[in-house]
Amino acid sequence: MKTTVFIAVMVAGIAYAVGVTVLYERCNENKCVSRVSKCQLTGACGCTLDNCTCCVNCTLCLAELWDDCCSCVNMCKPRNMSATDMASYSTIHDLLFNALTEHDKPHPDAHWTVERVTPQEEGVILPGLAGPDNSESRDNSPVESSPSTKPATSTAASANETIVPMDTCTVAYINICLGLKKCEDACEHMGAAKYRWFHTGCCECVGSTCLSYGKKKALCRDCPND
């Protein structure tokens, strides 16, 4: 009997611990509660991803805590999504990324800078266009990856037709140096479809309309690029 009670208590304790861990992975209350409360009281974070009217103001208010605290205001990728949820999530995050990169010169307090990129600058060879410049330094070779499985957007009615981009490719460079995992998280939380991480620590978040992985140059403002 005592053994049974002991096992039951242990199971309950483990379940509680796992629940607490998941909770704090979703929203680090110790780290975020003060800033999140301020942002919610001022109305800076009073919207949702599918109605992204406050997205820019919310990222500016959370500032350097955005990556750690966006889950507290329901603007991070939810866990354990189905395929249907993932498709909806990708659409919503396109809206977030578009909102954050709408202006070529973001708010002075923003922690990113925006670049518009041509297919040539992406290294995409299209019929009728000059080939890409492949003069980048090997020491600056990037790691390229995608937080989502959403393909780059392009149109072609047949194999003989010219492939043309539907929209301008937009990328956002995080101002400061980041590690690879932090770069992935930062781009995910901005709503980017992909990211490019340079070995210098420069992090480039790539929009869903880009045909490849954005610009092949490290242009982070406050991160050494050589």
Rank of each mutant, 00 (worst) to 15 (best):
K2D: 13
T3N: 12
A8Y: 02
V9Q: 06
V9T: 15
M10C: 15
A12Y: 09
A15C: 11
Y16L: 15
N30A: 10
V33A: 15
S37L: 06
K38M: 07
T42S: 15
G43Y: 00
G46R: 03
T48I: 08
L49C: 08
N51H: 11
C52E: 13
T53D: 12
C55S: 15
C61W: 06
W66H: 03
D67H: 01
D67K: 03
D68R: 01
C69M: 02
C70A: 10
S71V: 01
N74G: 05
K77P: 03
P78D: 09
R79G: 11
N80Y: 14
N80R: 12
D85R: 11
M86S: 10
S90N: 15
I92K: 12
H93Y: 09
L95S: 13
L100V: 01
E102S: 14
H103M: 13
D104R: 11
P106N: 11
P108L: 04
D109V: 04
R116K: 14
V117W: 00
V124F: 00
P127I: 01
A130F: 06
S135A: 06
N140A: 10
V143E: 08
V143R: 08
E144C: 07
S145A: 14
S148P: 02
K150V: 11
P151W: 01
P151L: 02
A152H: 04
S154F: 09
A157E: 10
I163W: 01
V164C: 07
D167F: 07
T170W: 00
Y173T: 02
G179Q: 04
L180S: 05
L180Q: 07
K181C: 03
K181G: 03
E188H: 05
E188T: 14
H189M: 06
A193L: 05
H199Q: 13
G201L: 10
C203A: 08
C203G: 08
S208Y: 02
L211T: 02
G214S: 07
P224C: 08
N225Y: 08
D226N: 13
